[in-house]
Design a protein around this nucleic acid. Sequence first.
DNA 1: CTGTTAGCGCTTTCAT
DNA 2: ATGAAAGCGCTAACAG
Lengths: 337, 337
Amino acid sequence: MQHHRRHTGSDRELTMRDVARRAGVSASTVSRVVNDDRYVGAATKLRVERAIEELGFQPNRLAQRLRHGRATETVALVIEDVANPFYSAIAEGVDSVARANRHMLILGTTRRTAQEERHVLEELLRRRVDGFLIVPSSQQHLDLYDRIARSASMVFVDRRPPGIEADAVVLDNRGSARRAVEHLIGAGHRRIAYLGGASTVHPGKGRLAGYRRALAGAGLPADDRLVRLGNHDAAAARDAAVELLAADPAPTAVFADNNRMTVGLLNAIRRTGHRVAVAGFDDLELAELLSLPLTLVTYDPTALGRRAAELLFARINGAAGPPRRITVPTTMITHEA
Amino acid sequence: MQHHRRHTGSDRELTMRDVARRAGVSASTVSRVVNDDRYVGAATKLRVERAIEELGFQPNRLAQRLRHGRATETVALVIEDVANPFYSAIAEGVDSVARANRHMLILGTTRRTAQEERHVLEELLRRRVDGFLIVPSSQQHLDLYDRIARSASMVFVDRRPPGIEADAVVLDNRGSARRAVEHLIGAGHRRIAYLGGASTVHPGKGRLAGYRRALAGAGLPADDRLVRLGNHDAAAARDAAVELLAADPAPTAVFADNNRMTVGLLNAIRRTGHRVAVAGFDDLELAELLSLPLTLVTYDPTALGRRAAELLFARINGAAGPPRRITVPTTMITHEA
DNA sequence: CTGTTAGCGCTTTCAT
DNA sequence: ATGAAAGCGCTAACAG
């Protein structure tokens, strides 16, 4: 491997022994001062504190944790990527609760691949983080989830891998999607397309089911040519939407199953000039300023992260009991043009 | 059902000794297998690997790092919060480079307060992260920055605290803002307001300077009543903008100095119905779909994080030499209504 | 009150 | 090729 000593001074890290020497005490005394032990003489304490200050000493948390057992005071959030506002909102919610519980947040991104997810989870296991908040990218890691649950705390966010008993915070995907599509039907639409992202994971499945249920409930036929799944970003969604809009007969409305899909759809509408009614899952920051009517299933995405982190810290702090499941409520908002 | 026995002091962590016992070898041999040492018998290696597999053992990185010196293979990103798309884009860029360099990313949020920033930086120092990517929230921590530079690698992002020599990745705030305001002037505007966020940190200062320079260059008076600073989020910006638009004589154009300001301004315009020309710093995802004309200073915010992380890893990998400064280029985009 | 000692889980000589 | 032993920086008995 590589050696690289930095800047001035020696190779070795600044340690309690160095502080001890400078203050003319033993390392234990330094430790006592650092940990606010009651049994330290006032004068000694002062000398040690001055030495710490002068040297700019910070105790090594790795050594501290290694010594007195578990608890790295770190929780991990495992998501696909942090550029998507949905995930960054979750991260924000988690972060606020983590900081309130004096833990730091480590970010693991899976880039939507099962392989990366396994890699990230194993590394986090090695790092002995106290808790895992996971938005699962795949359903292939039940063995790992099991191992995680055995040595740490774990909460699933937005998606629940089937066959695992664990705390989770989710949305009512099916019901919310169904209501949005029923809204379109109520406005007179009969040919309603579905523009979807990942179809293998849970929320997509639920939303699609809600869409189908709404159609069935109104006695409308399910035309598979109007369903486009597997679009992983806004650009893919836009291209798929352009094709959808060009179908013959064309749909008069489209339901987009997440924020990336809605953005892609809106871009397709702008590009083709082909106007359709739009409903979508997730909020958009400037929704009320757009020049077209829009129905959105909205909710507080930071609450997803916040509630999940609250469940997690309850476990970390020793809560026992069966798995809990929390559903974050959604609303439907209609924006006029 | 699962058992939720946790923190029950009695259960020790799974260790190499446990694996060793099960495989009938010594801990040293397990270590050799884990670290792909050449000098291990094929049969032994197999036995050890099976024991690892069966027990679900993962080596403790804390102990590994403690033993063989520095390098926690962790870098920290210190930002105000991760909900703001500007910061989450930076995080995305950093994360992509960090993962390519086999490091994990730890997130430190300052909530825009100097106190929290100090707290976070000290904690990161204790955790011995290898590198710091910092968007400074204040200018009060030169001592800490100094200490960080001495024991780790450090790169500033978006802002450079004065009086410290370190790598940094920034934008041309002054020039970009100036060009945007000149664009408004070129369109005939004479009363141009300035809607700004934090005014104590660098980018805001530069953008304000660019605004003033553009006015001065066109021989326009600088009317302080048209300058509103210190709006820390979109809601505050909206309220300030409502007041600005109600001024007498009212501005005919407004320059918003970051994405939060632009969002607030657009909301104010929608709410009051008072139409003004808008220019803003930062891109907006749905800018081209808005129903009003808009000039934006855009750039790739993930590049800010990416380039900064590249500088950081160059240092981590031993690069010496004087501080480097990189400026990420901006463009100006005009959206018609 | 303070110092000495042992050892957290791991890696690394040094023997064999 | 493998094991024994020392020690990374720190804390927790145990003495005194």
